[in-house]
């Protein structure tokens, strides 16, 4: 079983559309994991039907027991996040501000403060229209993606792939360079970068590559909208060669991505698009690379 993680430093490069395309091409041989929890859009293309769902808890927030509180104000005094308010006459915690550090609980003289695990959203297992299973999550407003949530999504995907004897796990990775993306990469066999030849695209690719390099995971790159700026495309190709990143393919700037998306489809469902053949070839190449 091989785990492929698709990431891109910045948004809007086509990462999710490509991940969903690979999911379509892999069909029954793969389990899909959507770890881009903040902008989880893959379900719009893969139309998953939920088989199973459960609440997800992550992080803690302080809760003050009003029956025990003696209104001494110590908690408010030490809180560095302005999370405790007494304008109503009661000391109350604002969940949006509370960082969950627990300091207030340690200074409360009467033990009125408890740290309560936060229900931050739901984790789902679904069946997609490509006849593969997909693990995904939905976060509540203001809740942060975390290494823990990503690990949970990947764990469920792996368990499902192992149980059903699947060959691949295809992961839509988290954005940025923080803990969630570290957790997305952890345990991966291969990383696919999706980038675009823009000043911000190359800038963010270099940032996220630093992380992948640290984990020593082999990687490849798809340059999307490659003809938009030939010069930056060449710069990216040079960066790939210098760092032993396999240059998987270049895709042209093409609005058929969006046309397909508007129909709720992945681009590979449009058999007339020239891009479809390129992505199919890319998936074949990936499979060969993973055999090695």
């Amino acid at each position: 079983m091989k785990e492929i993680v698709i990431i891109s430093g910045k948004g809007g490069t086509g990462k999710t559309s490509l991940t969903a395309s690979f999911a379509m091409l892999a069909g029954q041989t793969a389990v899909i994991a959507d770890c881009d929890v903040d902008a989880a859009d893959m379900h719009l293309l893969l139309k998953p039907e939920r088989i199973f769902e459960e609440d997800f808890y992550s992080g803690v927030a302080a809760v003050i027991d009003q029956d025990k509180c003696i209104q001494c104000g110590k908690c408010q005094e030490i809180c560095r996040f302005n999370a405790i308010d007494n304008s109503t006459g009661q000391y109350l915690v604002s969940n949006l501000n509370c960082e969950g550090c627990g300091y207030c609980g340690h200074v409360c003289p009467v033990g009125a403060i408890e740290m309560i695990e936060q229900n931050v959203g739901k984790c789902y297992i679904s069946k997609t229209k490509a006849d593969n299973k997909m693990v995904h999550a939905g976060l509540k407003i203001g809740a942060d993606n975390s290494g823990k949530l990503v690990a949970k999504v990947k764990h469920e995907a792996k368990a499902s792939a192992e149980k059903d004897g699947k060959e691949y796990i295809i992961v839509d990775g988290s954005p940025g360079i923080g803990c969630p993306v570290v957790s997305s990469l952890s345990g991966a066999d291969f990383v696919v970068f999706v980038t675009e030849p823009t000043v911000s695209g190359i800038h963010d690719l270099e940032r996220v590559y630093q992380l992948v390099k640290k984990f020593q995971i082999p990687s490849g790159c798809i340059i999307n909208k490659a003809d938009l700026n030939e010069k930056v495309s060449k710069d990216i190709e040079k960066f790939l060669a210098d760092n032993e990143i396999i240059h998987l393919t270049n895709l042209p700037y093409d609005e058929s991505f969006t046309t397909a998306m508007t129909k709720g489809q992945t681009i590979v469902e449009d058999k007339t698009s020239p891009i479809t053949a390129s992505i199919e070839q890319c998936w074949q190449d990936l499979k060969i690379i993973l055999e090695k």
Partner: peptide, 9 residues
């Protein structure tokens, strides 16, 4: 360790 949101490493 699955309970740790961050800093598992």
């Amino acid at each position: 360790i699955a309970d740790q949101a961050h800093g598992a490493g």
